[in-house]
């Protein structure tokens, strides 16, 4: 976890991080919304279809299996505007996890999941995709530390 005092500092560090991990980056952020003219499963499958040339059929089976694992079978054919905040977050996280050796970055996750009181849900959901990602990093404001259960001043 990385916490920052100001928006400018956070954006600057995030930009540097994105540049450094460009090839393996899986960004979960309001700045990287789902593609609105694609259903959820296509949004997630797109990464493997494009980078690994995975066939449509194989991609559909893979994504259906993943959504089932997350208990999100019902969102496969939904589009971005009709998703709830949790569903949208699941979709964005799974899309990020589709990158090979993914370095997943959660950029201010509470700005996506505005109804969450603390980070338990986040940790729970990250554990569910643990086998799919290589690293996970959370970027947020320092005043949000408590929501993650972090009390020390130091980063991470």
């Amino acid at each position: 976890m990385r916490f920052f005092e100001s928006e400018e500092e956070l954006q600057e560090k995030l930009r540097d991080f994105i540049t450094a991990h460009k090839s393996r980056l899986g960004l979960v952020s309001l700045e990287a919304p789902l593609i609105s003219n694609l259903p959820v499963w296509s949004n997630i499958a797109l990464i493997r279809q494009y980078h690994q040339n995975m066939s449509w059929h194989e991609a559909k089976i893979t994504i259906d299996r993943l959504l089932h694992r997350m208990g999100m079978d019902s969102i496969a054919e939904k589009r971005n505007p009709s998703l709830t905040k949790e569903e949208r977050f699941y979709a964005m996280l799974l899309r990020a996890a589709m990158v090979r050796d993914a370095v997943v970055v959660l950029d201010k996750p509470f700005s996506i999941l505005t109804n969450l009181r603390d980070g338990h849900f986040l940790m729970h959901i990250l554990h569910k995709v643990d086998d799919l990602i290589a690293e996970a990093h959370i970027f947020d404001y320092s005043w949000a530390k408590e929501r993650y259960g972090v009390t020390a001043d130091a980063e991470d």
Binding site: K22, A32, I35, L46
Partner: peptide
């Protein structure tokens, strides 16, 4: 910002 999303994912 969907175009920039695609670029973020190296598409």
């Amino acid at each position: 910002r969907e175009l920039s999303t695609l670029e973020i994912f190296n598409i």
